[in-house]
């Protein structure tokens, strides 16, 4: 026997369930309770950089839209700075919550395009949004990233995209670009299954 280690164990995850909106976005559950709901404005009123709109759908293994998903976004500002790690514009939270339309499953949110962020070992990461998905049937929140289709050179040099062994799967993390509108579908299973991370 050796000396016991005294670390605690992380609390195990449980699904957020179908009624996650009550807790995290009560307006979407159908009632107003808080003076201000958190996560409704990712970039705030003073954000510099390019305003963008992101749309998409999260689909399950049968191809059906997941209408009860809740997505959290975490991003740097246009200068590539995360709140808490440096100076950002007043009101720039860099974080928000996205709830799709309950009828169609399509989501849409507005923010600003983030700048590149320094990664590990001095390798610059291409602009990206960090996404975290929870829903009924998802036992542990799923982490992924959305990269930008109009950043081909930066994406080609990105240290995280290049970790993906099957080159064709890298495209599952790249949003289609049309001006300042980006479209990003997330597939939990199937030929186009999105790459998810163990972060």
């Amino acid at each position: 026997m050796a000396q016991p280690l005294t670390y605690l164990k992380e609390s195990p995850s449980q699904t957020a369930g179908p009624y996650v909106h009550i807790g995290l976005a009560p307006g979407d559950a159908g009632f107003d309770i808080y003076a201000q709901e958190l996560g409704r404005d990712i970039a705030g009123p003073n954000a510099e950089g390019t305003p963008i709109t992101v749309t998409g759908t999260v689909t399950d293994g049968t191809g059906a839209p997941i209408k009860d998903v809740l997505i959290e976004v975490w991003q740097a500002n246009a200068a590539g700075v995360y709140p808490g790690a440096g100076e950002v514009e007043p009101g720039f939270r860099g974080w928000g919550r996205v709830v799709p339309d309950f009828d169609t499953g399509q989501f849409r949110f507005d923010t600003v395009k983030p700048g590149p962020v320094m990664g590990r070992n001095g390798r610059l990461m291409a602009p990206h949004l960090n996404l975290w998905l929870v829903a009924r049937g998802i036992n542990v929140g799923l982490s992924t990233r959305m990269y930008f289709g109009d950043e081909e050179a930066a994406n080609a040099a990105d240290p995280v995209l290049s970790l993906i062994e099957q080159a064709h799967r890298r495209q599952t993390l790249v949003a289609g670009a049309e001006g300042n509108h980006y479209h990003f579908d997330i597939c939990l299973q199937g030929d186009a299954e999105t790459v998810f991370f163990d972060v």
Partner: peptide, 23 residues
Amino acid sequence: SVARSPRNALLSLQGSMSELTGP
């Protein structure tokens, strides 16, 4: 969970600013 669970292995990612900062 059957239709809502990824079938490929999660890609292990060492923490960068994107994972080690938070709101």
